[in-house]
Every structure is written in C-alpha cells, then in structure tokens.
Nucleic acid binder design. Structure first.
Length: 377
DNA sequence: TATACGTGGGG
DNA sequence: TCCCCAAGTAT
C-alpha cells in the first residue's frame, strides 16, 4: 500500500455521511447513464475509458472508445499493435501523449505483469499516464477498492457540499479533496460511489447553473444552504492563448506531398504534420527563410509558390495563425530522413494528423479539387 | 508549484 | 468573438 502523506482528517458528522452515501447511491442507481465503458468491469476497458476521459467530454469520447475497443478488444491486442496504428485511433482526440503513454503502459503490463492490470496502488501508479485520479478510478471501479477518484466533477461537488473556497486549480486543493473523499467513501460500493459523485457533477451539479431542485443531496449541501452555489468552485482564470505566426509547407513532387513526423516531446508529439515553422514575433514572410533552412538541413531544396490559404487553430495555451504555402521540391534528400515521408496527394488517412493539419489539408484539397475522403473525419 | 499539453461544445 | 469548461498527467 502506498503511504498517504499526513493530510489532515476531517471528522464529518456520521449521520450526514451515512445519508449522503445512501442518497447518492440511490440516485446513481436510478439515473446513471448507459455508457459503453459501463458494460463490463474489465480493468483494461475501464483503464482505456479513464485515459480517454481525461479533460475530454463524454460525448466526444464515446465514438473513439467504441472504435478503439473494436480494434483493440483486449490488452494483448493493444500491446501488440504498432504505435502509429494506436495514434491513428486517437487522431482528433487531443492530448496525444495519453495514447503513447497508454500504449507503453499496456506493453509493460503485458510483458512484466503477465497481462493483468495491477491491483495495488503502488504498482498501478507507476504506469505511464496513470496519475492519482486514474489509479483511484481503475482500482475502485474494476477492483472494488475504496480509493478516492477526485476529478473536476468531484472537486466541484465537494467545494459546494463543504462550501470550500480553496482554488481548485491548485494541486494542494485536490489533496485536500482526496482526504474528504476517503472520509465520505462508501466502503461497500467504492466504484459506484466514485462514479456517483462524478455523475452528480456531470448531470446535476453543473459548473455554471447547478440544478439544485433535482439534486438528491440538496438538503445536505452547505453552499445551497448559504445560497452561494453559483460562487463555487473558486478557480483561478487560465491565461489566454499566446498568438504565434505559423507556416505550413505543402510541398509537392510527382503527385506526392512531403509530410514530417513531429518530435517525440512537446506539442503534438509523435503526430504527422506538414513541415512547419512557428514564431511569436516574426511576420509570416520573415518565417519563410526559416522553413527553407530547416528543409535544406534535411536535404530538401524547395521553390515556394502560392499561398494556398490561411486558417487559425487554437490550442489551450497557444493560438496558431497559419499560412499554407505551396512548394515544389527541386531536389530531394537521398535517402529520405527518418522523420519524413511522401504521401499520395489526398490519401491522408494512412497517417495520423492532428486537427490543425487536417484543416490545412482540407484547404489544399479544395484548392486542387482532389477527392479527399478521410475515413474518420 | 506552475505550466505544457488538444479539442470541441455551449452560453 | 470570447470565455469557460471536460472523468488529469508529467515535469
């Protein structure tokens, strides 16, 4: 067992605790949604769903989860897959490190743990991409262990139940919430209790307009009693995205387009792209020599042509103002550097591209009138 | 501890 | 258009 750090304990009123468990579980039994990952308690299936659901809406995840499970029905299937295939099934979901970490972790489980997802907190927490929340979620849902699984929903619910004004953006606040969660936890039904908390946050205890009239525990909620449910949770505002000028090179030769795998770390790590340069201050024109230089260092000499179009793409932390520039490869590196490859124009769905590049490829396709038909998008 | 890391939906 | 948000983790 992992040693929990010495967190303060909160001696909650016993009657309050029992009533909240009873009301929450009863409400969950009556109102829980039919979701694909609730059809079994297979630890692998629970695990995949929890990774996909990180910072991602349920409605967005459902089709991805179904496609993923049809193609990788068991942990061994996923462990034996190529990383490019895994990324292809993650294409468009975002936070792509989740997919690479999950794949690496599943391979470790297959080889080191005999294909069985670890059942103890210490071991499962060492797997890539499995943090405090995911460890608690898998252990409670799949293995019925009384571990807290405190996500954004649970923090919102708790901040209201206990009228807490701690900033939920701070890691220390979540640790405090986990201490509360351990106190309130239903030891008989840990998985349902954790899911009930999250379901309440998702269906009733909304961020902006909580439906307190429909809440099964409204009489037990301190924020409601004080009429401050709309003021909670307290959360520090995020910084706005930083604008960047970006150029995508759409470089052709003999009906093929040059594409490049992005580096293994950082933004869109490991995904395919068009050759790209980005800069905060330079204008787009000033960026062209940088792109030429990058390509020359890889052995490509390019003559630039028309601007094919422009588009914007907003990440959580930066905003790309993209110019798509047509180019013709005059001379080509032999052999082709590892991170580059040629794709037949229009056949983009053989590789996994993030959304920003899908936008650009769609613009280029509309220019050239090719009949691009992506299989997923 | 604060920041990087995607994307899409809704008010 | 803008802002907030959504089942977090790694560093």
């Amino acid at each position: 067992m992992r040693e929990r750090k010495a967190e303060p304990t909160y001696d909650l009123d016993q009657d309050w605790t029992e009533e909240i468990r009873k009301n929450l579980l009863h409400w969950y039994d009556q109102n829980k949604r039919d979701l694909p990952w609730r059809e079994s308690r297979d630890p692998y299936r629970v695990w995949v769903s929890e990774i996909m659901l990180q910072q991602t809406r349920v409605d967005t995840v459902i089709p991805y989860y179904q496609r993923f499970m049809e193609n990788f029905p068991t942990l061994i299937d996923l462990a034996e897959a190529d990383e490019d295939e895994v990324l292809k099934y993650w294409e468009g979901l975002g936070y792509y490190s989740r997919a690479r970490n999950l794949h690496a972790a599943v391979k470790k489980v297959a080889t080191v743990y005999g294909g069985k997802v670890p059942e103890d907190l210490e071991t499962i927490s060492q797997l890539k991409g499995v943090g405090t929340y995911t460890a608690g979620a898998v252990l409670s849902i799949a293995y019925n262990q009384p571990e807290p699984a405190v996500d954004g929903n649970v923090m919102r619910v708790f901040s209201r139940w206990f009228a807490m004004k701690d900033d939920v953006a701070k890691p220390a606040t979540r640790r405090k919430m986990e201490a509360y969660a351990l106190q309130v936890m239903c030891r008989e039904r840990p998985g349902d209790f954790n899911q009930g908390l999250m379901e309440l946050g998702a269906l009733i205890c909304h961020p902006l307009s909580p439906v307190c009239d429909s809440c099964p525990v409204n009489s037990l909620c301190q924020a409601r009693q004080q009429g401050i449910q709309h003021e909670l949770p307290v959360k520090k505002k995020a910084k706005p995205p930083v604008p960047y000028n970006v150029i995508f090179g759409y470089i052709k030769q003999d009906g093929h387009v040059l594409v490049q795998r992005r580096p293994q770390g950082g933004l869109l790590a490991g995904m395919w792209s068009l050759p790209t340069v980005e800069e905060q201050k330079k204008g787009n024109d000033a960026l062209i020599p940088d792109l030429s230089k990058n390509l020359a260092e890889a052995g490509f000499h390019v003559e630039w042509g028309r601007v094919l179009g422009e588009t914007d793409h907003i990440f959580s932390h930066r905003r790309w103002k993209i110019t798509i520039l047509e180019g013709e490869a005059l001379s080509v590196s032999q052999p082709l550097p590892e991170e580059y490859t040629w794709v037949t124009e229009g056949s983009w769905d053989s590789l996994a591209f993030p959304k920003a590049y899908h936008k650009a490829l769609r613009i280029a396709d509309s220019r050239f009138g090719s009949r691009f038909q992506g299989s997923l998008f």
